[in-house]
């Protein structure tokens, strides 16, 4: 690792940050060459570079927010995203761009025409393609360092989810039905990992980070039976709402993985963009 660190530094450009600290920036092309030469994956090479205070150029604008240790933590992390539709697509896109090293993506569906209005990876040319496959292709285009594990299956029971999501440090709820969301909270409890919940309907959306001991969705909907769907059935899901809620969810994941900031924990952000209002509700 010492050797690869020195090799990468020799390929990098020296620069100084806003505080006058010296560091090096290396291009994606150079890091790819070096990784191939020494037989490391892109992710391993990026981590080695960061440890030697060599910043992959693609993360320059991350640095002020997550820092060196934060970027290493992101690359070493695994995040499970359950649902690769309206919310999941943007969440996967954002986490890949931030450099989260490994994504486990679960979704059983294929793209349909009514997904074109809002789902990040849905195109006229890929209707009928499994959503997880489109996600894998997109991540490969955006950030080669990110490893993607996909499962094209329907999961309803906590135990099924636990089996597929083992190894993830954070789970993201990008599902579209209440009973499945509650099952996912149970799975997150069994795995002892935090869950970042997001849901949308029309102009409205909500976000909350749920730790294993938190009431979370049970606090909102109780222990009894819940309806399959909410008001999204009447209000639909326009283009902007999933982007807005997914963006909050991405930020929660990044804070969890880097240990920075204050989480929306036991606090639910409830957004009504029709009237331009955001409320924070204790849950």
């Amino acid at each position: 690792m010492q050797e690869i660190g020195e090799r990468l530094r020799a390929l990098a450009v020296e620069t100084t940050d806003a505080h006058g600290e010296q560091f090096w920036v290396i291009s994606s092309a150079r890091i790819r060459e070096a990784a191939e030469q020494v037989g490391l994956s892109r992710r391993e090479a990026e981590i080695a570079a960061l440890r030697g205070h060599v910043l992959p150029g693609r993360y320059v604008r991350n640095l002020g927010t997550v820092g060196w240790e934060g970027q290493i933590a992101l690359l070493q992390s695994t995040v499970g995203i359950i649902g690769a539709g309206g919310l999941g697509g943007w969440i996967i896109e954002g986490l890949a761009r931030m450099g989260v090293g490994r994504l486990i993506i679960i979704d059983n569906d294929v793209f349909e025409e009514n997904n074109l209005n809002r789902q990040a990876f849905c195109r006229e040319g890929n209707l009928g393609q499994p959503k997880v496959e489109a996600a894998r292709q997109r991540v490969a285009e955006v950030n080669v360092a990110v490893e993607v594990v996909t499962h094209q299956v329907r999961v309803d029971k906590p135990q099924e989810m636990v089996e597929l999501l083992r190894g993830a440090g954070v789970l993201v709820d990008a599902l579209d039905a209440l009973p499945t969301r509650l099952a996912l909270q149970q799975a997150a409890r069994e795995l002892s990992v935090p869950l970042v919940h997001g849901a949308i309907a029309g102009y409205v959306g909500q976000v909350m980070t749920i730790f294993p001991d938190d009431p979370g969705l049970l606090g909102l909907y109780g222990e009894g039976p819940v309806p399959e769907h909410g008001i999204e059935v009447q209000w639909g899901n326009p283009a902007a709402t999933p982007m807005m809620v997914a963006a909050w969810q991405i930020q929660e994941v990044i804070k969890l993985l880097t240990g920075r900031g204050e989480l929306l924990r036991r606090r639910m952000l409830f957004m009504d963009s029709e009237i331009g209002a955001i409320d924070i509700l204790q849950v």
Binding site: G83, G85, G86, L87, G88, D173, A174, L175, D176, A177, L178, R181, G198, A199, I200, A201, V204, G205, Q206, L220, Y221, V226, P227, E228, H229, G230, I231, E232, N237, P242, F270
Partner: peptide
């Protein structure tokens, strides 16, 4: 009072 929101 707010409605259940479950879309994704």
């Amino acid at each position: 009072l707010f409605p259940p929101v479950a879309g994704g």
